[in-house]
């Protein structure tokens, strides 16, 4: 039975919690290229999800648009029930939506602890409290031994953790992680995966962009697959990776059929 007034039923009246983040028809073009094309998705509070897709699918563009670093041509971003479309980046962060960068961007000349303190001071009234909170978060992420070290001298694995620590210190409600595992070796990846689990367990909703499929399979409860700026599949990781459209988006047209036939 079709519901003629579906839009009135969808919002939070009654069954189930409302989404913490809702993207409605996001579009953004760069010249003739549609980096985002009518992208819609909803992230539920407390969930751990992943955004995957081939290179150039629009994942990082999506994060940039959601976090206020890129203006949208069309569409609406709703966070905690509030329309945050067009808000400046710092205001979105203060509302509790914090992102990390794919290419880590530490405050190079400052020590690791000072770096984390920048995130920590967002919600701590005094410098001393911010520093104490930064030390606490830094220890949780295993960065203690680097506290006094200048950020630019850190090895890549520690830099990735620093990026995570800074964002976490700002007490996010929703954390957007842009490829925190990229550039890490398998052993380092195995060390970070429990950290992400723990972040979610502490009550922070996590949405990650990730290329390391082994990690996506172990971490994400649900996966959105982007190709050419639009959503082509959504579901549990195991389902999604069997989806024909997903296989073809990664491997090219006809790949799914060839795989099914057992031909390379």
């Amino acid at each position: 039975m079709p519901d003629p007034d579906h839009s009135r039923v969808a919002p939070a009246t009654g069954d189930g919690p409302a989404p913490i983040l809702e993207l409605v028809g996001l579009s953004r073009r760069f010249g003739g290229l549609a980096a985002l094309d009518q992208l819609s998705l909803a992230v539920m509070p407390g969930s751990l999800g992943a955004l995957i897709g081939p290179n150039g699918a629009g994942k990082t563009t999506c994060f940039a648009a959601v976090s206020g670093f890129l203006a949208l041509d069309e569409g609406q971003v709703r966070f905690l029930g509030q329309d945050i479309t067009g808000w400046p980046a710092h205001r979105i962060c203060r509302a509790g939506l914090v992102r990390t960068f794919q290419i880590v961007q530490p405050f190079a000349g400052q020590s690791v602890l000072e770096n984390i303190a920048v995130g920590a001071q967002l919600r701590r009234p005094s410098r001393r409290e911010a520093l104490a909170w930064a030390a606490e978060i830094g220890s949780r992420l295993g960065l203690q031994r680097y506290f006094g070290v200048a950020a630019q001298t850190l090895p890549i694995a520690a830099r990735k953790r620093l990026e995570l620590a800074r964002a976490l210190a700002a007490d996010p409600r929703l954390l957007l992680l842009d490829e925190v595992l990229a550039g890490l070796n398998p052993a380092e990846i195995d060390e970070v995966i429990p950290l992400i689990h723990a972040i979610r367990a502490s009550g922070v909703t996590v949405l990650m962009i990730e290329h390391v499929m082994r990690a996506v399979m172990r971490l994400a409860e649900q996966v959105w697959v982007l190709a050419n700026g639009s959503l082509i599949a959504h579901g549990a990781p195991a389902e999604v990776t069997r989806d024909h459209r997903v296989i073809e988006a990664y491997l090219g047209p006809g790949a799914a059929a060839r795989l099914a036939d057992g031909q390379p």
Binding site: A89, R99, Q110, G119, L122
Partner: peptide, 19 residues
């Protein structure tokens, strides 16, 4: 500290809630 953050990396600073 916020000023130094802006000086060293403005994008990161904005992402951490700094105007």
């Amino acid at each position: 500290a916020a000023l130094a953050a802006v000086r060293d990396n403005e994008e990161s600073a904005r992402a951490l809630g700094i105007d």
